[in-house]
Design a protein around this nucleic acid. Structure first.
Lengths: 336, 336
DNA sequence: CTGAAAGCGCTTACAG
DNA sequence: CTGAAAGCGCTTACAG
């Protein structure tokens, strides 16, 4: 810590240029010099100062991750936490370190960090407003968006095919003969909730079953509580449905709690499906049928693609969506 | 991004020294000069380069967080994720940015990062081996440990009073007359699991009930699966207990799943208690009685204390433990 | 193969 | 109140 390249140079009887060469393993260094330098480094426990290096290299080897979550947890979120884990994993693999910032920061501190160029690139997770996207575009800093709302076609944007997922959910329910269905939908400002709902609705309609608006509860958040409340409201409106689709697992889990409190059984009285396949979905009691959406793969890809962008290797901005997958569990089928 | 302090200086017709003064708001600058500089900054959208600044200031305003989790998720972990969220929150408040690193990194890359002085201080979360602690001590870099195993009295170490928590759990069960109890314990190398178990055991013994070793399942991990397996094993050994204590909530949840699969009810046939009060404990079905352990407060304190250390303000190394709290829910009481 | 020099973008004394 | 100079710890051409 306390030693600099000069200390190593002196100790080895060479110039700092030579030390620099052996550290970066570039250029020519005689075997003897190299040996002496390596020895000094070892003795002094010398480590190059990354900040100084970053300054001249104009590269920090840092990636900033901004997750938009105004009031809710970020890391511990069952969906976004998974993405973050995947980002962490891939970043370490590719030699990047990760700065994690909350959106609250974004308006002030974290924005400054980016502006102050302490990161080589950015990963924006979840919903971000247009101004922000424009802002980053103007910064000429490479960035990718993950699971956000974005209609700029020139922005790299990783998303699940949520509409297809909604369709899969509907098809599964229909295959079980569950035509009397209600829905709890998360906030429609979020691309994913909107599309999941649309895909679900369209499929029912296509099969000749209309989903009246009073069969849908529009939740204010995508949290457990809203699922709980949502079911109560729907049941109060008209207790005549046999199945419930929620646009994410947390909502579904909240609904299940409310269902049991009413003395009803899942799936005997009401079959329930969620969306996302968060870890708890499989652990829950009863286990929750759901649509698996990419989290780990999205996180990994975000870093890999960003890495390419940082290196100036242009990739297609127009990436295919991740394909969702049906997971049938107890909450619809009644069997493991 | 592309502009430097020189560009601002030229545009304003002053020297870069003056620009620096207005940016850092230090020293004297005439009102007119200040105004011109501010205007240029605005026009050019200039932002100081944080890397350059960090180099001369010898301060990065960065804190590194290392979470030890060899094979399991980090951010999305219901316990550590919460701590991380709290760290993120407090750090942003105090003007620090957070680097998150996994332990896999630690042996190579992240260790280098620390050595390369890209952080002003460190937060070490969870179990870390002795060498590592010594290593950091030798680096003369301020650090605090959170929820780890550490017997160095000169290391700042934030922990819950897990033994007391185990005691609280035992007292609660005893108060319900549940003397025929079994236990699933997480890995004893972890300070917290060890102490939770000890506190629990001692309390039963004190009340005249011995907990034979065959009543305890020693799990290989602290995950859901091990709870599931643990119950099956215990039940196979001797299906004569009416209550189960698990040293964390995930284990308890896994056990509950196994209990239901055996056709038994919680708490009617078997009452279950966990430990930690992760978010999902309250959401689970049935809701899980548990011992609340500090997560958010620990995360906040870790940053605040580290901040003081970084500033050279010495604080007591000997901090009081966080006091655990009993949360009674359906899984023991049979009522909300 | 190696060293001296210049420079990355800032801040911090020091003259004036 | 302000500017020139030195320096933070490195890397990168450029001579030799």
């Amino acid at each position: 810590m306390k030693y600099t390249i000069m200390d190593v140079a002196k100790m080895s009887g060479v110039s700092k240029s030579t030390v620099s060469r052996v550290i970066s393993n570039t250029g020519y260094v005689s075997p003897e010099s190299r040996k002496r330098v390596l020895l000094s480094i070892e003795k002094l426990q010398y480590r190059p100062n990354g900040v100084a290096r970053a300054m001249v290299a104009r590269q920090t080897q840092n990636i900033g991750v901004i997750i938009y979550r105004q009031h809710h947890p970020i890391a511990s979120h069952p969906f976004y936490g998974k993405i973050l884990d995947a980002i962490l994993e891939k970043a370490s693999e590719l030699g990047y370190s990760i700065f994690v910032m909350t959106d609250k920061d974004l308006t002030s501190k974290s924005a400054d960090f980016l502006l102050e160029k302490r990161v080589d690139g950015l990963i924006l997770v979840s919903k971000l407003n247009h101004e922000l996207i424009d802002y980053f575009k103007n910064m000429y800093i490479p960035f990718v968006m993950v699971n956000g709302t974005c209609d700029h076609s020139d922005v790299i944007h990783l998303v699940n095919d949520d509409e297809r997922g909604g369709e899969l959910a509907a098809q599964h329910m229909l295959s079980l003969g569950l035509t009397a269905v209600s829905v709890i939908s998360g906030p429609l400002e979020h691309r994913s909730h909107k599309l999941r709902l649309e895909g679900f609705q369209k499929t029912y309609q296509r099969e000749g079953f209309t989903l009246d608006d009073d069969r849908i509860y529009y939740a204010n958040s995508s949290q457990f509580d809203e699922g709980y409340k949502g079911f109560q409201q729907l049941w109060e409106r008209s207790p005549n449905f046999k199945a419930l689709f929620a646009t994410n697992d947390m909502i579904a889990l909240g609904a299940i709690k409310a269902i049991y409190e009413k003395g009803l059984q899942v799936p005997e009285h009401i079959a329930v499906m969620g969306f996302d396949d968060i870890d708890y979905a499989a652990m829950a009691n009863p286990s929750l049928s759901t649509i698996h959406s990419s989290k780990t793969k999205m996180g990994h890809d975000a870093v890999s693609i960003l890495d390419k962008e940082i290196q100036g290797i242009t990739t297609t901005k127009d990436l295919p969506m991740y394909v969702p997958e049906l997971k049938v569990r107890y909450s619809t089928k009644g069997t493991k």
